[in-house]
Amino acid sequence: MSPFSAPGRPHRDDVLIAASGLLGGVLLWFLGLHGGPPLFGLPARLALLALAAMAGAEMLRRTAPGTALAVAVAALTLDVLTGTVIATVLMFTDVVYAAVMYGSPAAARRIPRACVLATVLATLLPVALLRDPQALLIGVAVGVGTIGPAWTAVIIRNHREAARAARLRAEQTALLAELDRREAVLAERARMARELHDMVANHLSAIALHATAAQAVDEPAATLEALGVIRENSVQGLAEMRRLIGLLRNAGAQDAPAATPRLDALDALLERARGHGAGSGLTFTLTDDRPPGGPPLAAPVELAAYRIVQESVTNALKHAAPGEVTVRLSRADGALSLAVTSPYGRRPGPRAPGSGSGLVGMGERAALLGGTFDAALDGDVWRVRAMLPADEKEQPQ
């Protein structure tokens, strides 16, 4: 923005300010409420000209603040020489304020400094020339009319720019979060596609091979064994298909295969969590009450259970109060039960903001397997509970 840009259409509020100042100044002048007689023999009516020029500068205070300030300085000079109307002085202070508030960044830096310099000169020169302490009042008047509005505008402008920058950062953060969320969804879908290829296709291949063997070998024992393998792979393949079919829509770009997390990796997960949560006063313990030597869990159940625990631990690191976070696993009546408890309350420093999508994702993982999920506040403890079918034959068809 040029400091002396061409004026545009005046703002409605500026027109009202200019009109009010002009009418008020004319009234004061006709009532004889002005500073004193003109200097150097100038006609007193020139004060009205200065008033009109100042009102015109007020109309340009937003659209051309540099031009408005130049006109205002000339008008104030004429006003001082012709008797000083208080309305003209008041409008001048507003023009100084507007020049800093709405002017270019360079003008916002230079004008306050110029006001300080003008105040210093207006203080020292009259005292040096008049040799009268009362001459200090001239500097005080100049400071009130220039430094006051200029630095007030600086403070307000800096506050507005800081608020604008904060809003911009918030919008950028929200945009990055949304991009991260979309990329995470695409990555999850791509991972599910890889699991479909690596796991379901493997089951189907085993079914085809053992079916061919059962047809080729005319031995009852071999046929029964092949049928057992076929049934086992069919059940596991169907379970994985049920979990994946609802998630494989518009899969993202393929990347390198990734290993599927399992429950035996929870120790490593919690060990990492202990390191991350040490500064927040959090400790993590794992209690595995599953009977030893039991049948292995299906990969979809292991994956869902691991992810639910992982998300719960992540939420605890972000939101939990200092204390102990416990993870408990148990298996009974054909179901895998897991529970994660964390202390709820105030914690040092601000809580990290959350969107709630993690709870939705945990609920969806449990629902896709035909299980249940619940997360709620129980007194001063946040509890996450999930019940997942441990036997494939018990999952919904």
Score class of each variant (00 low, 15 high):
residue 355 S to G: 12
residue 361 G to N: 15
residue 195 E to V: 12
residue 71 V to T: 11
residue 127 V to K: 08
residue 294 G to V: 09
residue 381 V to F: 14
residue 112 P to C: 03
residue 317 L to I: 02
residue 394 E to S: 15
residue 103 G to S: 02
residue 182 R to C: 01
residue 15 V to F: 06
residue 47 A to E: 11
residue 250 N to I: 03
residue 110 R to T: 01
residue 344 Y to G: 07
residue 252 G to I: 06
residue 373 F to D: 08
residue 150 A to F: 01
residue 347 R to A: 13
residue 331 R to A: 14
residue 88 T to K: 05
residue 180 D to M: 11
residue 163 A to V: 12
residue 315 N to M: 04
residue 272 R to C: 01
residue 79 D to H: 00
residue 281 G to V: 05
residue 230 I to V: 13
residue 178 E to W: 08
residue 11 H to A: 15
residue 97 Y to H: 10
residue 341 T to S: 03
residue 343 P to I: 13
residue 360 V to H: 09
residue 37 P to N: 10
residue 280 S to Y: 00
residue 206 A to C: 05
residue 349 G to Y: 13
residue 200 V to Y: 07
residue 172 Q to P: 03
residue 4 F to A: 13
residue 228 G to S: 02
residue 65 P to T: 07
residue 329 L to K: 09
residue 45 R to M: 02
residue 38 P to T: 09
residue 346 R to I: 12
residue 217 V to K: 08
residue 324 E to I: 04
residue 158 N to S: 13
residue 87 A to Q: 14
residue 99 A to W: 04
residue 358 G to Q: 09
residue 173 T to S: 09
residue 248 L to I: 13
residue 219 E to H: 12
residue 317 L to K: 04
residue 223 T to R: 15
residue 220 P to L: 14
residue 314 T to R: 05
residue 383 R to S: 12
residue 354 G to P: 06
residue 371 G to M: 07
residue 160 R to N: 12
residue 62 R to P: 00
residue 192 M to L: 12
residue 202 N to L: 15
residue 121 L to M: 14
residue 157 R to V: 03
residue 219 E to P: 00
residue 246 G to V: 01
